[in-house]
Every structure is written in C-alpha cells, then in structure tokens.
C-alpha cells in the first residue's frame, strides 16, 4: 500500500513554485538551446550572417575553414561564405518544413477525428487510404508527386505534407477510439450536442498531448526528408542556401574541399538530434505511463 500513497501526499504539499516546476521537468537544456539558436538564426539571418549568402567572391574561392576571420567556415567554389549560407539555410529549412508540417498536422488531425468519431464506412475508407500512404516509404511517394508536378519548393512542400499527414491521422484516430465511449462524450451526446461540437470541444482537447508529441517526434524525419529531396535536386534551385543543396554541391569537390559537404551535413545531424531528444523528452513528460520509467 505504501507505494500508492504519494498521490495523496502530493495534494497536501504547498503549491509548487514555477522555478521548482521547471526544475522537476528536467528540461533537455542542450537540445532546447540548439533549437533556439537555429530559430534565432532563421529569424535574423540577415543580421547574424557575416556575408550575403549569394554573393560571389571568386578571388577567395575554395578557402579552407578556420584559416581567416573573414570566412570562418571557408568558402565554396564561387567564393560564397559557407557560414552565411548555413545561417540562411536555417531560414530555408524552416520556411519549407514549417508550412508543410502545419498542413500535414491539420489534415491528419481532421481525418483522424472524423474517422475515429464517425466510425463505420467513413472510418474504413479513410483508414484504407491512410494505410496505403503509410505503407510506402515517404521518399517514393514524394518522388512520384514531384515527377508529375515538377520540381520546386512548392511541390516539395506538397510532397512532404502528402506523406506526413497519414501518421497523424492514424495516431489521432486511435486516441479518439479510446475516448469516444467515455462518459463525458456519451453525456454530451445525450444532451444533444452536435457531432461537430463534440469533436471540437470534447475530443480535440484530449488529443492535443498526442499531437504535440507526434509533432516533435516527426520534425526530425521531415527535416531529413526535405534535405534528401533538396540533395536530389528536386527542391530549390542550385545556389540557393538550403542545407541539402550545400551537401550536393560539396559532392563535386570531395577531394579538394571537404568542408563544403561536411558542415551542412553536420548541422542537419545536430538539428535532427536536438529535435529527437526534445521529442523523447516531451513524450516522457506528457505521457504519465512512461514518466515514472524516466
């Protein structure tokens, strides 16, 4: 019995201060700091970057990194400053992934809510489609879309959204199935609340946690997908500051200028790691079943 008392003890305790709560949450400070830096770079790229990312300076081409204070991370074949291109790359990354993620989340949530709550044939049809999308590797679906719509940022965004919504739909549907027969939903039905209102006021608030966790876990995958598509030359035009494109350009100078490919890839890895760590933390924090294990 002793093991079950802490719940009671907790209620008797004095209100916890904000500082204490933050301390108890054991926030992953390093990942958060990395993500804040990236967001800061993206927002204020023109102020942070030492050079124009598109400005050529052929006299200083292919400068190695850490050799001059002018170009800390070296320059590429046209003398563009690598550090500046990386900083602007953060902006590009957010500009492409954020809107496509938002669309994917919205679409996935709506499909999941409708499918889970309405059940019957709508559920069967929607889930068959969801499974079909989930059944294929994202890169294949993305390639198919880009083939028929053509290359370009917009189409890459469409491709990302089109491959990512399904995971959200599946998860949300599962959550809805678990809560749809609970008392508060049934009572609302008896009371005559319209289905739309039940979904919005009673179901949706209960899936927000899942939504947040799934989002933070997926962001890393989406960044990798976007980088891969850029690398394959399906997104932005060559010369634009996108991390995937930078690595692709570095590929042509493997032996002469290793730094062109090294740094952008390193940045992608670190950012994805930061998102993954943050996602893991958020899952442990928001899911009480896992919290005690952590």
């Amino acid at each position: 019995m002793a093991a079950e008392t802490p719940a009671l003890v907790l209620e008797e305790r004095a209100p916890v201060s904000m500082a204490q709560r933050i301390k108890d949450a054991r926030l992953p400070w390093v990942p958060i700091a990395i993500l804040l830096i990236i967001i800061f770079c993206a927002a204020f790229a023109n102020l942070v970057a030492p050079h124009d990312p598109r400005a050529n300076d052929v006299r200083n081409k292919l400068q190695p990194p850490f050799a001059s204070s002018e170009h800390v991370l070296g320059t590429d074949r046209l003398g563009k400053d690598m550090l500046s291109r990386l900083i602007f790359g953060a902006r590009t990354m957010l500009q492409v992934t954020a809107p496509s993620m938002i669309v994917a989340i919205l679409a996935g949530t709506i499909v999941g809510l409708v499918s889970g709550y309405s059940g019957r044939w709508a559920d069967s049809v929607l889930m068959r489609i969801t499974d079909a999308v989930l059944g294929f590797p994202s890169i294949l679906v993305a390639l198919l879309i880009v083939t028929y719509l053509g290359t370009g940022v917009w189409n890459v965004m469409i491709a990302i959204a089109a491959t990512q919504w399904a995971r959200f739909a599946r998860m949300i549907r599962g959550e809805v199935l678990a809560i749809r027969d609970r008392d508060f939903v049934v009572l609302a039905q008896i009371y005559g609340v319209s289905p739309g209102m039940i979904v919005w006021r009673h179901l949706f608030p209960n899936v927000i946690n899942t939504l947040m966790v799934l989002t933070s876990v997926s962001v890393g995958q989406v960044i990798l997908l976007e980088a891969s598509l850029s690398f394959l030359g399906l997104g932005l035009a060559p010369g634009d500051p996108a991390w995937g494109i930078l690595v692709a350009e570095g590929r042509e100078f493997l032996t002469q200028a290793w730094w062109i490919a090294l740094f952008p890839g390193l940045v992608i890895t670190v950012v994805v790691m930061a998102f993954n760590f943050f996602g893991d933390w958020l899952r442990d924090y928001l899911d009480p079943r896992l919290r005690r294990a952590g």
Partner: peptide, 17 residues
Amino acid sequence: VFGMAAPQFWVAIMLII
C-alpha cells in the same frame, strides 16, 4: 542516436571522402 539523425547522403559522402 547519431545513426537515426544523420542524413544518409551526408554519411555516404563523408565515408567516400
């Protein structure tokens, strides 16, 4: 952790180098 976060194309290029 690294294996799940590093982009394939980048690891490939680094290994080639």
